[in-house]
Amino acid sequence: MSAAYVTKSPWVVHYDGSSCNGCDIEVLACLTPMYDVERFGIINCGNPKHADVFLVTGSVNEQNKGIVKQIYEQMPEPKVVVAVGICACSGGIFKDCYNVMGGVDQVIPVDAYVPGCAARPEAIIDAVVKGLGVLQAKRDAMVKAVDAPAEEVAEAAAEEVATEEKKAGAVPPIFTMAEIKVNTMDFLKK
């Protein structure tokens, strides 16, 4: 999937998981005059609440997984995650280190992977363009969900559940009414 056009200016937020800086400076190099993605309105903003694309470099560990998760959760929907560099994809050369859990996808869902040590700016830009395609698809899905009349949505949802059930072969356990009541009471007490 690729974005033939960009309707809005996608803003990126960048976080360094436990990378060696190599990919970080290449991410910044994308924004500076040689590669200059700012001419397409792509801006590196420091605030996750303004961002559409999350660029993560480096692998995750016990100390930073909470921060990666938190930044991801603060971003508004729709959002796209790009794992930059082989460390963010799988842990890379540091995979065997005791303080490396592995790729970023251990913690948050990733939409595009950029291999390379360090990832080249061209590859990062390519991945962001791919990510924009995913972003557009996610946005379309959201718009569809909002525009469609309630009945249609319910029908579509029921259909989706039915096909998923067919795939899974068995009905997944759902809360019974009694359980829901108990859960609600517990929640209210808290």
Binding site: D16, G17, S18, S19, G58, S59, N61, Q63, N64, I67, F94, D96, C97, Y98, N99, V100
Partner: peptide
Amino acid sequence: IGYIHRGLEKL
């Protein structure tokens, strides 16, 4: 500090 510690000396 400690967000980027990888422990590469042990490699």
